[in-house]
Design a protein around this nucleic acid. Structure first.
Lengths: 167, 167
DNA sequence: TATTGTTATACTCTATAACTATA
DNA sequence: TATAGTTATAGAGTATAACAATA
């Protein structure tokens, strides 16, 4: 591919004065994936800052919250819930177990399954983390009113869980 | 950490009947990061399917759209616009150049900068990709009305670009 | 001295296949 | 034979530091 093959696509005037500033106008804003990614980038950045002190990753936080809500949840069920693959859950639960936040208990009826439970330490931590997470969400969405924030959650839920969100 | 240290956190009844199904109820839905991630997962999945035929990744698509809108955009400007780091832009533009979709032109005034332009082939492709992307967005958000879809875009924009979104 | 682009590197996230132990 | 969990592996995506060329 030689430049000469594509002369018509180049506005010669631009070769001296290139576009050097941020050009984030209306070009991409209509693309849903782009808007979601940019918003998530900001929300996760706030989340990371909030969790830095406790060295907790997003998937670790979500796991702790689910385990708290469903003590004895199995790893396969956790994988389904968080929409991640079973191999990731292994590392996830390993990291929580190594830090003394959760532990596996082998099921008596079906010895293939492991129930996951929070330790006392895990229960104490998850309560604090949930508060930090809420504060972080508010900080990341300062430009939104409380009504808009709830509206946003509803719209997002409609996308990923239409059955629940539509009713 | 011995299980016996944490007996109080385990509901013994659960040790025989674990929670094995999907438990994705209301536990995590209030978390903005979780909702954003789940929605993005779905939207990107549709996008991937739509682009599979053309073997285009999300960042490649965004780059093509920006270059089309701003012929001669520099790599540093592209990095700013897409909120990615300069080293990634190098690979990104390399991939577009290798496929004959875009090309670098060294700036005459400031020979450090490269302007990026679409080739004829790139211009033809990006028009088709934009149409595919729009269809993909619609398919991923079938549960939303057109008003809700626009509302969602506005709310997301308010998050990542409060200055533009608030007015 | 600062900036544009580049290389090298590493770390996280994610996906897949193959394996084990239990059923 | 099927399932829960595990291991190994590889590919994206992402971030950082260091470098070359140019200003």
């Amino acid at each position: 591919m030689h430049p000469s093959d594509n002369e018509t696509s180049i506005r010669q005037a631009s070769l001296e004065d290139l576009v050097t500033g941020p050009v984030d106008g209306l070009i991409l804003e209509e693309r849903l994936g782009y808007a979601l990614r940019r918003a998530q980038l900001k929300v996760f950045k706030h989340f990371d800052e909030a969790m830095r002190e406790h060295n907790i990753r997003p998937a670790q936080f979500s796991s702790l919250v689910v385990i708290e809500g469903y003590p004895g949840v199995t790893q396969s069920s956790l994988a389904q819930t968080l929409a991640i693959d079973p191999p990731r859950v292994v590392n996830l639960v390993n990291s929580l177990e190594e830090r003394g936040l959760a532990m596996r208990v082998r099921c008596k009826r079906d010895r293939r399954s492991h129930g996951i439970f929070l330790t006392k330490q895990g229960e104490a931590l998850v309560d604090k983390l949930k508060e930090l997470s809420s504060q972080s969400d508010l900080a990341a969405t300062q430009a939104l009113s409380e009504i808009e924030r709830r509206q946003l959650l509803m719209l997002l839920r409609k996308i990923y869980a239409p059955a629940h969100g539509e009713g």
